[in-house]
Amino acid sequence: MSRIAPTLSLVLFMWLPAAFAEEVKPQDQPVNQEGYTAEEIYSVAENFFGGTTEGLAKVIERVFAEQGRPVAYIVGEEASGAIGVGLRYGRGDLTYNDGASMPVFWQGPSIGWDFGGNASKVMTLVYKLRNTQDLFQRYPGVEGSLYFVAGVGVNYQKSGEITLAPIRTGVGLRAGANVGYLHYTRKESWLPF
């Protein structure tokens, strides 16, 4: 019995730290600044959204004309709703042009003349991101949107040099304009702040 106790203690000593250790975070890495071509982004959009409509193609064309080539993109889903004050929650995958990817979450409040709710597929084009860890912060933005059963919309969010261009196609009924921010995080959170 005396031999079992030290062996059991050793097993518990080795197992407990691993059992309660925090989830290993993806390694932060410098981002290749070469960026994606418009053709590559059209292809991703076609696969993700299930085909490109003329409206979606025009939105992507406009973002490329205004911002240039993105260094990464995020594809995912989100849900939002508002009655003057709104909330938005989303999750997706950040992908670089070398094929590396990692999960990303976002949430945030808004305020304005904004009513209704919608569920959207989102493809966010990421500009001037130098290092993965720099993505995880708050991005203020002004959004005007009008969703009637289905639609395509884009707005810009900027913090320092980094610009995000979320392109949304969704279903729902939502009309208005709002001011708010989205907080991008490594882990899911129900706190919108």
Rank of each mutant, 00 (worst) to 15 (best):
M1H: 10
M1E: 08
R3P: 03
P6S: 05
P6H: 02
T7E: 12
T7D: 04
L8S: 09
L10E: 13
L10R: 12
L12S: 08
F13N: 07
M14G: 12
W15K: 14
L16P: 05
L16T: 14
L16C: 05
L16I: 10
P17T: 05
P17R: 00
F20I: 10
E22D: 14
E22W: 07
V24D: 01
P26Y: 01
Q27L: 13
D28A: 12
Q29F: 08
P30G: 12
P30V: 13
V31W: 14
V31Q: 11
Q33W: 02
E34V: 06
G35V: 08
T37F: 02
T37Q: 05
E39A: 14
V44N: 01
F49Q: 12
F49L: 11
F49G: 02
F49I: 13
F49C: 11
G50W: 09
T52Y: 05
E54I: 09
L56F: 10
L56M: 14
A57E: 15
K58F: 01
I60G: 09
E61D: 10
R62W: 03
F64T: 04
E66N: 03
R69H: 05
R69S: 10
V71F: 13
A72T: 13
I74K: 07
I74A: 04
V75I: 09
V75S: 09
E77A: 12
E78P: 10
A79N: 11
A79D: 09
I83K: 11
I83E: 12
G84R: 08
G84F: 11
G84L: 10
L87Y: 01
R88D: 00
Y89G: 07
R91W: 05
D93W: 06
L94C: 01
L94K: 00
L94G: 01
T95F: 08
N97D: 14
N97C: 00
D98W: 07
A100Q: 09
M102G: 02
P103N: 08
Q107F: 00
S110F: 04
G112T: 01
D114S: 08
F115Y: 15
F115Q: 03
G116L: 02
N118S: 15
A119G: 13
A119F: 11
S120T: 15
K121Q: 01
K121Y: 02
V122N: 10
L125V: 07
N131R: 14
N131P: 02
T132L: 06
T132Y: 01
L135A: 07
F136S: 09
E143W: 06
G144R: 00
S145E: 08
S145F: 12
Y147I: 13
V149Q: 01
A150L: 06
G151Q: 10
G151K: 11
V152Y: 15
N155E: 02
Y156W: 03
E161N: 14
A165R: 04
A165C: 02
A165Y: 12
P166H: 05
P166R: 11
R168W: 02
G170C: 11
V171K: 00
L173Q: 05
L173T: 03
R174H: 15
N178H: 06
N178T: 15
N178E: 12
V179F: 13
G180K: 12
G180S: 10
Y181S: 05
Y181T: 03
Y181R: 04
L182Y: 03
H183V: 05
H183R: 10
Y184P: 04
T185C: 04
K187V: 09
E188F: 12
S189K: 10
